[in-house]
Design a protein around this nucleic acid. Sequence first.
DNA 1: CCCTGATTCGC
DNA 2: GCGAATCAGG
Length: 174
Amino acid sequence: MNWTDERVEKLKKLWSEGLSASQIAAQLGGVSRNAVIGKVHRLCLPGRAKAGGSTAATTRAKRPATSAPRAPNYASRMTTRTVTRTAGATVMKEEVEIDVIEDQETAPVGNVVVPMSRRLVLTELTDRTCKWPIGDPMKDEFHFCGNDSPDTSPYCTFHAKLAYQPSGERRRAR
DNA sequence: CCCTGATTCGC
DNA sequence: GCGAATCAGG
């Protein structure tokens, strides 16, 4: 594959957004993550602050410290929270309805993890990434959750809960 | 073992 | 210039 201007631009954009080399490689297509890293060096783009695994892609996923602390004894109850994330220049807000089924005892403070999408595209899903779709498949911003899923489960722990709601009806989540 | 970026070096 | 192999780390 050739490094056309378009591809280089896309590389720069995605790299500056903090995506990992392998993610960028998947989105560009036809190149390995090594190729991406090599290109990044050749372009003299700023490397990642910390070397090694942690990666901006993972670290970047900070959730807004919602003022809503964990309610101590609301046994099984629906909570709604709004998450805000930034994707490039676009700020997206999502309202997520969460059915808290977890045992309250293990829910001290801020224990409910808000699902933070890694905005993966189809080609970068692996055996252990959450395949929960987000957005309109017809539209461009369509992506998948992409967070780690236990074993080879198709979904992360959060979306597995949404997927497996025992008695058919009752919750609607978007 | 999964992943991350960094570096080297033959092509 | 390119990127696979390798290294180093979480």
